[in-house]
Every structure is written in C-alpha cells, then in structure tokens.
Amino acid sequence: MNKDGSLISMSGVAKRYEHFTMENFNLQLSSGEVLGLIGPNGAGKTTCLRLIMGFISADQGDIEVLGKSVKHDIVSIKQDVAYVAEDMRMFGNKTIQWHMQFFSSLFVNWDQPYATELLETFQLIPQQQVKTLSLGQRIKTSLLLALARRPRILVLDEPSTGLDPVARHELTSQLFQIMLNEDHSVIFSSQFTQDVERLSDRIVFIDDGQIISNQDKESYLDSWKRIDVCLEAEKDLKAFSDIKEVQKNALNMSVIHSEFNSEIQKRYSQLGYSIEISKLTLEEIFIAQTLHRRQHLSAKGINA
C-alpha cells in the first residue's frame, strides 16, 4: 500500500508523444475499489494503464503501485498486478495448458482450482494452441491467466472489446467476484459504458490526456440530469453555468446539466418554469461531455 493508503498513485505524471501529451496527471486507486476509465479514442486511457504497468516510462512525475516505485521496483509490482488488453497476444504455438503451467511456476498466488473452474466457465479447451483461438477465446484465455493469479490489482485495457454479449456478461460476473475481497482492486478502461456504469465505484473521464472528471459513480451519475422545459425558458438558460447540451423540438426543449442539484431545481421554479427531470445513462453523459468539450475547444480556436 502507498503512503496515502492507495494502491496506485500517479502524481504530476507527464508523458509526451509527437501527437499526444499528458501533463500533470494525478490519479489514485483505493483498496477494494473498481475504477472505470472512460474517454474517446486517443484520450490517453491506454497510456495511463501502460504507465501504471511500467511498459512505458513517465517523462515526469511519480507512479507508485502497492507502495513501490514503478521506476525502481516494477518486477515485484508485476508479481501482484495482472494486466489484460484486447490487443495482447500470448505465445501462438503454445497451448492454453502450457500457458497455465508457465503462470503457475511464475506466480506464487496461482490458484489452480480457480483456473480449472474458469476453463469450464469460459468453455476453453486446454489442449488448444493459442494461435488457433478466436478473438473471444483469446481474450478469455488472457483473462483466465490474469484472474487465476489472484492479483491484488487487475489492470484491464478494453477487455470486453471483441467479446459477444454472453462472454461480456461472463467477464462482468467474474469481476464482481473479485469485489468480494476488499484488498483487491480493479482499474479498467472500456468503450462499453453499460459495463463501466455497472461495475465501477469510481468513474474517471479522460480526454486529450487530461482528467475531465473523477468522481464516485453515484455522485457522478446523480449530477448529470436532463431537464425538459418549455421553449420560452431558452432566454433564461444563461443563469446556469453547467449546461452541456440544449436540444429543441417542436414543443419543448431538453437541457443537459452536468452539476444538477436542488439549487438549480429551485432556480427553475423561481423563474416560473415547470420542469421534468430525468437521469442520464453513462453513455449519454459520455457523448454530451465529449461533444461539449469539442465544441468548447473549437470555439476557443483550439483544434480538438
């Protein structure tokens, strides 16, 4: 555990590429927490996860995992941290069985009964060569290897990409099982907002290498609301600073607020408008957030 009690702590991290920059990036993962990373393509989710795994080194700042520095102690960190990515390939001409053997001699916490159980759940044939596996089977194999290691931290980069709905459901159920142990944490990125919405305790939204929001899931979902209000209200909308999207139709308009609370609700009624409040799914929040940021940036003359 790190000094501040977190399992992962990134502070003041910078990573610069030709077409992508991450500056002053700060992120913490607590014990027992499931953290979901969302953001558009190229936002820096993979960069963030690879920095944590030490695959790439930070140009600036400190990354500590399980109380150890990623720069100096990566081997012992990786003993307790497992990683799965959609584009990750195991050794093609070796079988699943071989990989399980390989992992069991590498990891002290390897749980053979659990691995066998997962083989069955995921319907994998241990004698099969990895290069003959379908995309879904390959991801399931990577997940099996990662899960049966019983890692303290599970780092998943787009694990459900390429999985059919049933396989995705199986993956989600396995991740729920991990949550039972309050010492174990998960950090994952996914394009499937339903999965993130379902699984995460904390949602971190990244765009252009920056953290746009970092909140516990319930507060985050609660703060975004869609307000249906009559068209006349348009002139008064400048009273609110948190409006991300306004959509008009023939009868009324819907306004998306990102920091909705009772004050805003009161304000509407003071202005004499009756409103209908509805919640947003993470998918809708994701789209509204991203599009609003793009418009905002291009309005400022910065190419988003």
């Binding site: 795994m53 081997v75 012992s76 799965v84 050794f91």
Partner: peptide, 17 residues
C-alpha cells in the same frame, strides 16, 4: 510483430531482463 511484447511485459520482468 506478433504483439507478444505486451504479454511478456505484463510478467514480472523488466525490459532489460
């Protein structure tokens, strides 16, 4: 080329090792 490196680097090993 086969993208084995990501997998290998997820094991307890440094790039140098």
């Amino acid at each position: 080329k086969d993208k084995n490196t990501v997998f290998v680097m997820s094991l307890p090993i440094t790039t140098g090792q």
